[in-house]
Simulated scan of single mutants.
Amino acid sequence: MVDISNCRWHLWNLLLQSIIIKYNSFFYICGVKVNNNTFLNIQDLTKKYRDIHALNKIDLKFDQNGCYGILGANGAGKTTLLLIITKLIKKFSGQCKLEQDQMNYFGFLPENWGNYSFLSPIEHLDLLYKLRTQTKPERKELYSLLKWVGIEEKFWEKNPKTYSKGMKQRLGIAIAFSASPKIVILDEPLAHIDPMGRQYFLREFQKYKMKNDAIIVMSSHVISEIEQIADHITIIDHGEILTSNSFLEISLKNNNYEYDIVSISSNQDFLKEFYNILDRNRDDLKITDSRLTKGKILINSKFPCEIQKYLHEKSTDLYVKPTAGFLGKFYADILGDI
């Protein structure tokens, strides 16, 4: 009697070996080689689809670790920009350069990523991990990734064709973050994810960035997602960059002095303890008002960058961001309409 599972395993290994040999530079969702100190430098970048400018002479520079949020309406040019950055689109004019001196990998989740219908989630992760690192992953690491993205154990060996859209998206997130890349590029990563799941992943992306000193580039047309996670905001519309700057700098330039100090781990006791520290140092930190609420500390200050630096020295769990609602108002002002 033929052992079907054993045959499947041998076929699987042959497939893997053939892919590695044939596509040694394969990078789609598997990862692209970059460095630990990468910054992105784009100059006069233009991409046309026939007579339509998807991107029109844009300049953009990302030069430090953090989370870069790319915000724009459907069809604004966000996906085209990310596909050029990841070298999936190679025909364009202008310059798109990733400065580098030490090689590493980055993960990429396209907006509409395609899974292999004949592979289970574990086999997906195993294959793409090997393609990315040329090493065999520990099984427990793959299990940990699936747990992290919220795929229940009973689905680990099932065909992704049976998955809901949300579960498939969770698998895509697991693949993008496998092998702990220093740079992760996410195109509408929370599409099809339920509301509680969205909040969970926004916190987890923040934790990953802090823990790994990583860069996350995330596009979305949902203002609240970018507002919650981004350190740097780029707004794109009809293929043109309307603004690209630190979120705190954008806030200051628009005379907004209301900020939230947020705990990534949502530790209320830690927030309370830190609130008392801030209160004692209010004059030194130039905080004119502060108030402790559930999940955050509300402050009023004209020096949020200095406060952010102070927080970073004290804890990697805390960060400063403009109060909820500011980005929506700014976005409406800069476009004239939403």
Score class of each variant (00 low, 15 high):
Ile4Thr: 09
Ser5Val: 11
His10Pro: 02
Leu16Ile: 15
Tyr23Asn: 13
Phe26Trp: 12
Tyr28Pro: 11
Ile29Gly: 02
Asn37Trp: 06
Asn41Ser: 14
Asp44Thr: 08
Leu45Tyr: 03
Leu45His: 05
Thr46Ile: 10
Lys48Arg: 12
Tyr49Lys: 13
Asp51Pro: 07
Ile52Arg: 04
His53Trp: 12
Leu71Met: 10
Gly72Asn: 05
Gly72Ala: 00
Lys87Met: 13
Cys96Thr: 01
Glu99Asp: 03
Asp101Tyr: 13
Asn104Leu: 05
Asn104Pro: 05
Asn104Gly: 09
Phe108Glu: 02
Leu109His: 04
Trp113Glu: 01
Leu119Gly: 06
Leu119Trp: 06
Ser120Ala: 08
Ser120Trp: 01
Pro121Arg: 01
Glu123Leu: 03
Glu123Trp: 12
His124Leu: 12
Leu127Trp: 05
Leu128Thr: 12
Tyr129Pro: 05
Leu131Phe: 08
Leu131Asn: 11
Thr133His: 06
Arg139Phe: 10
Arg139Glu: 11
Lys140Asp: 15
Leu142Pro: 15
Leu142Met: 15
Leu142His: 14
Leu142Asn: 15
Leu145Met: 05
Leu145Glu: 03
Lys147Ala: 10
Val149Lys: 03
Glu153Gly: 03
Lys154Ser: 11
Lys154Gln: 11
Pro160Cys: 05
Thr162Asn: 12
Ser164Trp: 02
Met167Asn: 08
Lys168Met: 03
Gln169Pro: 01
Arg170Asp: 00
Ile173Met: 07
Ile175Thr: 15
Phe177Ala: 00
Phe177Leu: 01
Ile185Val: 11
Ile185Ser: 07
Leu186Ala: 07
Asp187Lys: 07
Pro189Tyr: 01
Ala191Leu: 05
Ala191Met: 07
Ala191Arg: 00
Pro195Ala: 04
Gln199Lys: 09
Tyr200Asp: 01
Leu202Met: 10
Glu204Ser: 08
Phe205Ser: 05
Gln206Phe: 09
Tyr208Lys: 01
Tyr208Glu: 01
Lys211Pro: 06
Asp213Lys: 11
Asp213Asn: 15
Ile215Thr: 15
Ile215Pro: 14
Ile216Ala: 05
Met218Phe: 02
His221Asp: 06
Glu225Asn: 11
His232Trp: 14
Asn245Glu: 09
Ser251Asn: 04
Lys253Asn: 07
Tyr257Ser: 10
Tyr257Gly: 07
Ile261Ser: 01
Ser265Asp: 11
Ser265Cys: 03
Ser266Leu: 14
Ser266Glu: 12
Asn267Lys: 04
Phe270Lys: 11
Phe270Gly: 09
Leu271Gly: 13
Leu271His: 04
Tyr275Gln: 11
Leu278Gly: 13
Arg280Asn: 15
Leu285Gln: 03
Lys286Phe: 14
Ile287Pro: 09
Ile287Phe: 07
Asp289Leu: 12
Thr293Asp: 10
Thr293Gln: 13
Ile297Gly: 13
Ile297Asn: 07
Ile297Arg: 06
Ile299Cys: 12
Pro304Asn: 04
Pro304Phe: 07
Cys305Asn: 10
Glu306Pro: 07
Lys309Gly: 09
Lys309Pro: 05
Tyr310His: 10
Leu311Met: 01
Lys314Tyr: 13
Ser315Phe: 10
Thr316Ser: 13
Thr316Tyr: 02
Asp317Ala: 00
Asp317Ser: 01
Leu318Pro: 03
Tyr319Ser: 08
Val320Gln: 02
Lys321Pro: 14
Gly325Ala: 03
Asp333Val: 00
Asp337Val: 11
Asp337Trp: 08
